[in-house]
């Protein structure tokens, strides 16, 4: 039964990847990427159960956090043009 769930996660990842490839704006791609990351977390958890070794859950935990930070970093880079601190929003956007 876990194989079914894993297959569903993979199918949805393919769909999100279609959006990441098509996505007209960079924000579509970032959104799809973030979504693929969330699905990866689920996939890691499910695959642990498929193998009967649910020890990978720590990886899923770490992946959830890294995925979030990565998304925020990419967005900050897109919005401000660099990852430095203290760039005020008013001057950074245009």
């Amino acid at each position: 039964m876990f194989a079914v769930a894993a297959a569903a996660v993979l199918v949805s990842m393919v769909l999100a990847m279609v959006r990441a490839a098509l996505g007209p704006t960079a924000y579509d791609r970032v959104l799809a990427l973030n979504n693929i990351g969330a699905k990866t977390v689920v996939l890691i958890a499910v695959l642990g159960f498929v193998n009967g070794r649910p020890d990978f859950l720590d990886l899923a935990l770490a992946y959830a956090l890294i995925n979030f930070i990565g998304t925020i970093a990419v967005l900050k880079y897109i919005e401000y043009g660099d990852l430095g601190v203290g760039t005020p929003r008013e001057t950074g956007t245009e």
């Binding site: 039964m1 876990f2 769930a5 569903a8 990842m13 769909l15 999100a16 979504n35």
Partner: peptide, 15 residues
């Protein structure tokens, strides 16, 4: 699991 799979695929289809 099946309802979770449903929402996963439906959400991705929506994307």
């Amino acid at each position: 699991l099946l309802s979770g799979a449903f929402f996963l695929v439906t959400g991705s289809l929506g994307m």
